[in-house]
Amino acid sequence: MRKTLTLGLAAGIVAAIGFVAPAQAISSTSADLSVLHAIPGLTVDVYVDGALTLDNFTPGTLAGPLDVPAGDHVVAITAADAADASAPVLGPITLSLAAGSSYTAVAHLDASGNPTVTNFTNDISATPAGQGRLTVRHVAAAPAVDILAGGAAVVSGLTNPNEASLVLPASTVSAAVALAGTTAPVIGPADVVIKDGTLTIVYAWGSAEDGNLALATQEITVAHTNPGGVNSGTAGYAAQRDEMVRAIWIGGAAVALAALVAAVVIVRRRRIES
């Protein structure tokens, strides 16, 4: 069973693999926080600031984003259906969240197979028109890996819990994960869609020893492009909104002026004819 709860943060939670999160809820006083469960074979409950936030959170599930006030927040992960957060199996840990930023907290295995939590900062800066950002994160109990695209390494020697990013033209990339220095995939290949103005994050998670390595993906809209430039985050949406309002106002004024001119012409014609 999955429940959506409030933390006193007025935040909604949606869970899915291949989750798409618009980077527009953040503000000068809040941050976006998503949570990825990447520990195989363990269903958990997640508490934030002492409140049950994710109930029966299953492996391979991504939840969020939570729109949370900037500052420090304490996260504790307990066994499923625990009475409270007093006996965590992982944590408690403190996440420091900066206003106007986006984060994904990942519960995962370290390189030795021990449960841990890593809080990643998501790069939501604008990308050039027609391009998107691909970030690959190694959160698996596995040695260093290479990320392959079209059979060639585009990221080499990536270790747990690190990440690497590329800005690429919008396209579909066939990606695979191989042990560092090799080309035989241990995960994939899988098609990864790079979208214009989108941060696509691919997580390699699971355990090489247990043979359950897998991929999870997350998409965050970071910018809207137009012929005149690139808008990003809340500023981009606000600018687009203001432009739309301005266009509507100008268009309305033009229609009103045209109607007034037409009315004056009609009145003059009637006076002449009379």
Rank of each mutant, 00 (worst) to 15 (best):
V35M: 09
P65E: 04
A238N: 06
H138D: 07
A38V: 02
G113A: 09
A63K: 00
N162Q: 15
G132L: 04
D210G: 01
R137N: 04
S34C: 05
A98C: 00
V186G: 06
Y103G: 05
A63D: 00
S30P: 05
M244W: 15
L42N: 13
I248H: 13
I187E: 04
A176D: 12
Y47Q: 12
L42C: 05
L33Y: 10
A258C: 10
A107Y: 06
L7N: 15
A16M: 01
T127R: 03
P185T: 08
A214E: 08
A214C: 00
D110P: 08
G211E: 04
H108D: 04
R241W: 14
R246N: 13
A51P: 05
V261M: 14
S96T: 13
A10T: 09
A223K: 06
T43I: 14
L9M: 09
V264R: 12
L179H: 13
A164Y: 12
T183L: 03
L33Q: 10
V173A: 15
A126K: 12
D72N: 13
V44P: 00
T94Y: 08
L90H: 11
G64W: 01
V139I: 15
I248G: 12
L215V: 11
L213E: 13
G188C: 07
I26K: 11
S174N: 14
A247F: 07
A10L: 14
A259C: 10
V167C: 08
I39S: 01
N160F: 03
R246P: 01
A259Q: 05
I201W: 02
L97G: 04
V267Y: 00
A70P: 02
R246M: 07
Q240I: 09
V139T: 11
S112K: 12
S232F: 03
V202Y: 00
A21W: 00
N231F: 06
A82T: 04
L134A: 08
W205I: 05
A63P: 01
I147T: 11
L5A: 14
A262E: 08
P59N: 06
V222S: 09
T200F: 11
S30T: 15
E209W: 02
G41A: 10
S274Y: 00
G130N: 08
D123F: 09
G251D: 07
T221W: 09
A82Q: 04
D123M: 08
T225L: 02
V14T: 11
G113T: 07
I250A: 11
P185N: 07
N56F: 01
D49R: 13
R241A: 14
A107C: 05
N231S: 13
M1F: 10
D81F: 06
P22L: 08
A87I: 06
T118G: 09
A105C: 05
A107E: 03
R137A: 13
L66Q: 03
G8Q: 04
D123N: 15
A70R: 11
P22Y: 09
P59S: 09
A184I: 11
L168N: 08
D72I: 02
I248D: 13
V139S: 10
N160H: 06
A38G: 14
L260Q: 11
T198G: 04
I17T: 03
L62I: 14
D123S: 11
A262V: 05
V117D: 00
P161Q: 14
T159S: 15
R268E: 08
P40K: 07
G157H: 13
L109W: 05
P189A: 09
K3P: 02
T234N: 10
